[in-house]
């Protein structure tokens, strides 16, 4: 932020909003890391804890909603302040969804824990998760630093996540073709991969909102897209 406001309470409110977003983002980041860790190790204890911890993220979202509504009503923010407040409100929604995806991965981990692993899929998922985790970290850094260039760079990285998801999709379909007994497990893994892919989309959306917060406009260029899974068929019907 530029100079301080004449009313110092206003600055405190804006900082508090930023702190809540950062805390919420940090929690979601940790939840996702834990969810992947629990999946790889089939750690049911950790997975159970993740499901429980999601409530904190949900509660923070409600707090941010109430806080921004008050801030708009009482401070009547303008220009960059207005953009910061609105962006905070919308980013909180994105982060809440990311938290839900981590929780969903943990729930599926509890289901999968009793089954043997399937090929290299878990490793591919772990790789995909690593990309997404780095994106979360960078997008939160960009938010705190009000760094639109960094946010724009994160936005473009979603392409790699989509590509990996498309190849994972094909891989898991192939396993299911080979052995119908694997359909249950593979479907859960497919949903886990989809959760990660959607997490990448929400991070992209956060990155675009940061761009808006800084510049007052949405990024103009079309983002490269490469989720080919929607066109993918494997097996006799293809």
């Amino acid at each position: 932020m530029a100079a301080e406001h004449i009313v110092t309470g206003y600055d405190q409110d804006l900082r508090r909003l930023e702190n809540m977003i950062t805390e919420m983002g940090g929690l979601a980041e940790a939840q996702l890391a834990d969810a992947i860790n629990a999946l790889i190790k089939f750690d049911t204890e950790q997975a159970t804890a993740i499901v429980e911890n999601d409530k904190r993220i949900d509660a923070l979202e409600s707090e941010i909603d109430a806080f921004t509504i008050n801030l708009i009503a009482l401070r009547q923010p303008m220009a960059d302040d207005l953009r910061v407040v609105i962006t905070g409100l919308k980013i909180a929604t994105n982060i809440e969804r990311i938290g839900d995806y981590a929780k969903n991965i943990a729930k599926r981990t509890l289901t999968l824990a009793s089954t043997p692993t399937i090929g290299g899929s878990i490793n591919t998922i772990a790789r995909m998760a690593g990309m997404v985790q780095n994106m979360i970290k960078d997008v939160l850094d960009a938010y705190v630093a009000r760094d639109a260039d960094k946010a724009d760079a994160v936005r473009l990285r979603d392409l790699e996540v989509d590509q990996l998801y498309a190849s994972l999709f094909r891989e898991l379909l192939t396993y299911m073709m080979e052995d119908p007994r694997k359909i249950g497990r593979c479907t859960h893994l497919l949903f886990i991969a989809k959760n990660l892919e959607r997490t990448g989309d929400h991070i992209t959306s956060i990155a675009e909102r940061i761009h808006f917060m800084v510049h007052g406009t949405m990024p103009l260029d079309e983002r490269p897209k490469s989720d080919t899974s929607v066109y993918t068929m494997v097996g006799p019907e293809s």
Binding site: A2, E4, H5, V7, Y10, M78, A79, D80, D81, L82
Partner: peptide, 18 residues
Amino acid sequence: IFTKPQDERTQSYITGRI
């Protein structure tokens, strides 16, 4: 002017900064 002023001084004035 009230959502994305171009000049730093406009921004400072309308957002209540010094």
